[in-house]
Design a protein around this nucleic acid. Structure first.
Lengths: 252, 252
DNA sequence: AATCAAAATTTGTACGGACAAATGTACCAG
DNA sequence: CTGGTACATTTGTCCGTACAAATTTTGATT
């Protein structure tokens, strides 16, 4: 283990941990301690080069880390602005399994019963999070295991813009919002998910083999585009007994 | 708008869009079309330099983009492996509210009833996802609104390593796993969350003002460090009536 | 004082070189 | 055949330089 380089300044000892990481750590702590308060500009890259006796490459690598952690925003011609005291916790939703007794049956099928076109009234518009009077495609069906056991009843509202997919939806195995993203030039930017207990109305109860008014679980998911416009909204009614929703959230 | 540089090769025209981005785009499409199948290694950086007549800097910037989008994994000494045909969709869990009737009461309190030290037997070890015989701190209490209305009963198991926090936990208002991350040098890398229906046992039912055996909701969260070691595991029992869990997941 | 243009500042892109660290392979010794 | 060492390969870190592009500042002109 000899010195890493002939012309490495003293500030950069040979700790195995790269200098730009140390530098980023130091800058983070200085931001945290408000030496550089939120809203202020960090020193310029050149000034940081001087301060740390490092090359611009190294400084930029450090700043890149700060940016990745959501602590600074860099703007060409302006500088590096501090936007947060602490690291953003980025979680990547890596796995979402929704099952009900059927842990292993990862493969599920959407069995489409009916597809119809409807115009939203006030009540429905409220549920869908949008104005009344809009047209939607309503897909009614149920999600089952590959064995045919019912997991939940699904009502899926697809925005009128994607009406062309009407027939494709029936054949589609996977998630409908994926289909939309592939066929159209839209991106789902936000998903609002809600899990709540409900009392099952007669028709639902019958399909789920429950008595009318029995408790059940309603899982609602709203898929929104970047302008907050709902692309797809799904309602999924589950039996209470055996309901289990599990999810793994992983930090990047 | 004159030529961007004297020695810029022909492959890099002057399109305002930087060359490393174009290069990344091209490589992505080649991965998608299986010119480079999943599992295979991409050409080495040097080979890409030759192919695109670009410097290693530019090639590495392009590869960095592919890596960010989760399409390749780079490994020192090995190469750049293709791990996915399509871009990863990164969702950042930006907001998680867990409420029960109390939508506006974002502020909640953890009222600690008891703190004790326990050794896990097989059953408990199984629940906690770890080996039996380990020592844990068990914090028993309930989460309430600021008005004092009970939201849920909480049993929180904290790993023995963080036993020092025993007293701090009582005073602590926010999330305990935050406290641990701040005080110790650990990072929560994964959270396993599970929501399931349960039958409330007598003591739970009494506190939640339910009859014994009534249905309830159990929300379990396991906070894991990067070595899959559980740092904290919490069990939260809710009344069924009025239960509502909502979450917003935002794509980066 | 207001407006527009030029200049200065600052980050972005891109080139080149060099050595370090990690991985995989080939070879040798037992 | 097994185990370990030496070597080649490949990505990681770091230096230097130069010009481009975006923003802000300055200054001149109206």
């Amino acid at each position: 283990m000899k010195s890493r380089k002939a012309d490495v300044p003293e500030a950069q000892k040979r700790n195995t941990i790269p200098f730009y990481r140390k530098m980023a750590g130091l800058l983070k702590s200085e931001i945290f301690s408000e030496s550089y308060p939120v809203g202020a500009l960090l020193p310029t890259e050149q000034e940081l080069c001087d301060r740390f006796s490092a090359s611009r490459y190294t400084v930029r690598e450090a700043l890149r880390l700060l940016e990745k952690d959501g602590m600074v925003k860099r703007l060409q011609g302006r500088g590096t602005e501090v936007i947060s005291k602490s690291e953003r916790t980025v979680f990547a939703q890596s796995l979402t399994s929704l099952s009900q007794l059927y842990d292993y049956a990862a493969e599920t099928h959407l069995v489409v019963e009916r597809v119809m076109r409807i115009v939203s009234d006030e009540t429905l518009a409220n549920d869908l999070g949008r104005l009344p009077g809009r047209e939607w495609i309503l897909v009614e069906g149920m999600r089952t295991t590959t064995l045919g056991d019912i997991i939940c009843i699904s009502h899926i509202f697809v925005h009128q813009d994607f009406a062309k997919l009407r027939d494709e939806i029936k054949a589609n195995k996977g998630a409908i919002h994926r289909l939309i993203e592939e066929r159209f030039d839209v991106r789902v930017v936000e998903v609002h998910q809600e899990i709540s207990s409900v009392s099952l109305e007669k028709s639902m109860a019958r399909i789920l083999e429950q008595v009318e008014g029995a408790d059940g679980i309603l899982v609602t998911r709203r898929y929104l585009a970047d302008d907050d416009v709902p692309i797809l909204v799904s309602f999924n009614w589950h039996r209470l007994a055996g309901f289990r929703y599990s999810q793994v959230i992983r930090r990047e």
